[in-house]
Amino acid sequence: MINALTVEAKNSPEFLERLLRVCRHRGFTIQSINAEVNNTLQTTQINLTVFSERDITLLTKQIEKVVGVIEITLLQQPENIKVSA
């Protein structure tokens, strides 16, 4: 199942690395990712789509625990995204 989510966090050099580690370790493979820094607010916004057989809440609850996360938004499941083998 593919899910799209947006993660907003306090900007730090290693935040993206932390996020990617959590995704991989919890069994979610990344299908697409875009990260953008807001220098005014000192935040990072990361949009990503992930694939897993596991329930997406297993990932979002773990991301919520990462220090610096401000908000996670789970977007509607994109119907037009397909996983290629």
């Binding site: 329930d55 809440t57 609850k61």
Partner: peptide, 8 residues
């Protein structure tokens, strides 16, 4: 106390 443990 850890919400990530609920329904894990």
């Amino acid at each position: 106390v850890d919400a990530a443990e609920i329904d894990k």
